[in-house]
Structure formats: C-alpha cells, structure tokens
Amino acid sequence: MTRNLLITGALAVLLQVGGMVAGLTLSPPEQHMSDLVRIMFVHVPVAWAAMATFTVTLVAAIGWLSTRRWGWDHLLDASLEVGVVLGVLLSVQGSVWGYPTWGTWWTWDPRLTSVAVMVLSFLGILALRAFVDDPDKRASWSAAASILAWGSVPFTYFCVKVMNSLHQKQTPWGAMAPEMLRVLLLNTGTVTILTLWMLVARYRLARVELQRELDT
C-alpha cells in the first residue's frame, strides 16, 4: 500500500470508530426498543453502502462490456468483494437486531429473502471469477452475470413498500427523533467514506493481481 492510501485508510477508520462511539453514546434510547435502536446506526449505513456498492458493480459491468478497458474489470472485482463483505455483515447485524425486536433471528419475509438472494448472487459471481482462467472471459462473464444480479438491488429496496413484510418500511424524514437522525447521518457519512476507501484499495489490488497473472 502506498503511504497516501495508508494515511487515508487510518483516517477513515478513525472516523468510523468516532461514528460508532457516537452511536453508542450520543443518541437517546428509543421509547420501545430502548438501546436496541443503536443497532440502526450501523445497520442502515451498511445497507446503503452494500446496495450502492453493488450499483458500482453494475456500472463497472456496463463499462467493461462497452469499452473493454481493464480498469472497469478491476472496479467490478473490487465492488463485488466489498459488496459481499458488506452484505454478509448487513445480514448478521439484522439478525442480531431482529431477535430481541421481532422475536426471530430469521424469517423468509420479502426483504430478508431478497437480501439473501442479492448477497448470494454476487457471492456466486465472485466464485465464478475464481475459476475462470482466461481474464477476458472472466471479465465478460462476470460482467454479464452482474447485470442480471443487480436486479435484486431495486427489488430489495422497494419490496417493503409494496409487499407485506415483517421488516419495516423506509423511515420518512420527520418520523425519526432529530437526535437519532443526526447520529444516523454521521454514520452514513463514515461508512460511505470507509467503503470508498475499501473500493480504492481493492481496485489497486485487482490491478496488481491481473498484472502478476499476465506476467506468469
């Protein structure tokens, strides 16, 4: 890693730690779920970051298929892996929040099912990439699959609006106490910065890996 990448990474981590400390201390408890509301401050930003990252995957896939520039494939590679990490984390957080709130760790409601399909689809594409030897085919196949898999992202976002689900709908502005909203926005910022940093670091790794692969 370059010096600049290390310094910005350390800053991103510090910001994230600050956001989480704020999540644990600055917000009041919720009047029914009490301190459980603090899980929202890490869950909602990770949900946003995962879906945004998979949308970066879509852009990279279209970019590769239309230009055949390797930079798009590096971005595809990076966003797939970062998105899957965020997606798995999202499910764990949701499960830990769901048990004391809903009364279950997991249920096949539309939102949870859709997130499972989304994360598993992109995980499958990541696996696909690992066993295709030809870099060109690897890039094209995973790009085509990513465009298909991205359909799960808007479905995940909108399903709670139009289908009966256990998961609540998006909270409209004003339905959240301002002291909580502030902490949520702070954490949305820190998670976004950290995600961008992870994408940059993983992009550089993808570039080095492809170079090494072509050299041998």
């Binding site: 009041p28 408890p29 919720e30 009047q31 029914h32 779920m33 509301v37 929202m40 709130t101 809903w102 009364g103 279950t104 249920t107 256990l166 609540q168 709908k169 998006q170 909270t171 409209p172 339905a175 959240m176 106490a177 002291e179 909580m180």
Partner: peptide, 19 residues
C-alpha cells in the same frame, strides 16, 4: 405457535409525545 412483532418506521425518544 409463533408470534412476531413488527417495528414500524417511527423512531422516537422516550419523551416524545403520544406514541
């Protein structure tokens, strides 16, 4: 045999008005 509760999309501090 199974009872789950929903949380709605409101997040209120304990002192807020009529919930």
């Amino acid at each position: 045999k199974r009872l789950l509760v929903k949380h709605d999309e409101n997040y209120k501090a304990p002192t807020d008005g009529n919930l």
